Amino acid sequence: MQRQGSIGGSAAIRVRVTGGVLLVAHLALVAWLMLRPLDVPWVAPANVHPLAGIRADLALGWPRAARPLGEGLALLAPLGVLLPMAHGRLDVSPLGSLVRTTASGALVSTGIALLQTGVPGRVVDVDSLLLNTVGVALAHLAVIPAGRARLRRREVRPGGPAKASVTVPEELPQGRTPTIPRVGIAP
């Protein structure tokens, strides 16, 4: 039996497997990038004041601020596409999907920040949590609604896979409950 609102047949398996493999590969790359020890002569103090680092980057001027802000937005942005892809459902609430995906991105970012506390040369930066989460939400909004709409149109098209429909049989007259002859009781 097919889950309600999921992509049908072998296409669902391909999308979910591809999404899962790409998700694992991306998380492995992020872990490798963010959890390697840094050999630096000094370490900046932890930034626990929201938006303080972003304001400091913007104070440097736009061309110099674009790189750190862009890196913060892009680090976990693929999760905004890969998490719904690995889930593989078409008929879901757009707002619910955005909230679930953004919350998952925030949890992954928080996990990375917590793991970084034990890595030499790495410090906690609350602004990276904010930028990573916003990046996940922006990627989700940019790709997922249009992708789901395209897949739904393809599913409804003649020649495309038909949606499963369930018909309810009309009331049949009830007869005697069958019994098992050897036991003498109804199942």
Rank of each mutant, 00 (worst) to 15 (best):
G70W: 00
G70T: 00
E71Y: 14
E71Q: 13
A74M: 11
L76S: 06
L76I: 05
A77P: 02
A77Y: 01
A77C: 02
L79Q: 08
L79I: 04
V81C: 05
P84K: 00
M85G: 05
M85H: 01
G88A: 03
G88W: 00
V92S: 04
L95N: 00
R100H: 09
T101L: 01
T102D: 12
A103T: 13
A103V: 14
S104W: 06
S104T: 10
G105L: 03
A106W: 08
L107H: 01
V108R: 00
T110A: 13
T110W: 06
I112N: 05
A113L: 13
L114P: 12
V119L: 01
V119I: 13
G121F: 09
R122G: 08
R122N: 03
V123M: 00
V126G: 04
V126L: 14
S128L: 10
L129G: 14
L130C: 03
T133C: 04
V134Q: 06
V136C: 08
V136S: 11
H140F: 14
H140T: 09
L141G: 06
L141R: 04
L141W: 01
A142F: 02
I144R: 12
P145N: 13
P145K: 13
A146I: 10
A149C: 08
R150F: 14
R150S: 12
E155V: 03
E155N: 07
P158K: 10
G160E: 09
A162M: 07
A162D: 04
A162P: 02
K163G: 14
K163P: 07
T167H: 08
P169E: 15
E170F: 07
E170H: 10
E171S: 11
L172P: 00
Q174A: 14
T177E: 06
T179Y: 13
I180K: 03
I180M: 12
I180A: 06
I180Y: 09
I180P: 01
V183T: 15
V183G: 10
A186N: 07
P187S: 05
